[in-house]
Amino acid sequence: MKDLMQQLINGLALGSIYALIALGYTMVYGIISLINFAYGEIYMFGAFTGLILAATYKTNVVVALLGGMMLSLVLGVLIERVAYKPLRRSSRLSALISTIGVSIFLSTLMVLLKGPNTQGFPKLFENKVYAIGNFQITIYQIVIIGVAAFLMLALHLFVTYTRTGRAMRATAQDQDAAGLMGVNIDRIIATTFAIGSSLAGAAGVLAGIYFNAVQPYMGTMAGLKAFAAAVLGGIGSIPGAMLGGLMIGLLEVLSVTVNLSEYKDAFAFGILILVLLVKPSGIMGQKINKKV
């Protein structure tokens, strides 16, 4: 039991990272039905930016985190401009392949810039261990869960209460109708990319601190799993992405507990397929009625 609680905390920390990335997938998908495969690479760029800021410029953790988010934001907007916007009226498959092109480009670029090897993350602050009752929680975990919770809350408030947030929700429902109501669709799409990307950047920096490992291909698997998390929770749904991320994180940690760590990647996708078969729209997704 004690072990289980401990694993729950570990899973929560890992899940928070997945949830942050999954939010970007779900927001972009919700608005333009595009699976942005370059997303994992944005996360990777965020991690590297944090690393460079912390290692080379010796900045503190807040600056590293904000720096990672800022660069990812710019990158996200750039990707939208260059690789998605010209394809808005083409088939979705073309847009998807274009994002795959971006993904290949970005990971190769990072290999060229920083080499293909895994790099450690400098210690930004002392990692203390706190014992609460029977289980332990590290400062790193507190920071990750705290930052993730804060960002998700901020996102929730933004989407629910601001004018831009309302415009985003309207655009997700019906792009043309929102446009006719005076919503600047181009700006909303760019904003969505920007927000999602900055969340992925934050996740990248947090993952760098947590795992103490950053490398150019780290985005592929994390991206796929976060995408799985988004679909699991119900793609297009923001609470769904959070839930899905936490579930995938917990599942991964639990598979280690039951000595099946070699299969942890398979578990995430196995559950995903099972959920899709039972409820194709995901746990919190809404069923779309087929119109004849």
Partner: peptide, 27 residues
């Protein structure tokens, strides 16, 4: 089972299946 799914959902299910196969072969 998966062909009941449409579009992107089928895509992600096949992607997941491929990852599972890879993990199984690895082990």
């Amino acid at each position: 089972p998966t062909l009941r799914l449409s579009g992107d959902y089928l895509a992600i299910a096949t992607l997941g299946f491929a990852e599972i196969v890879r993990v199984i072969f690895t082990n």
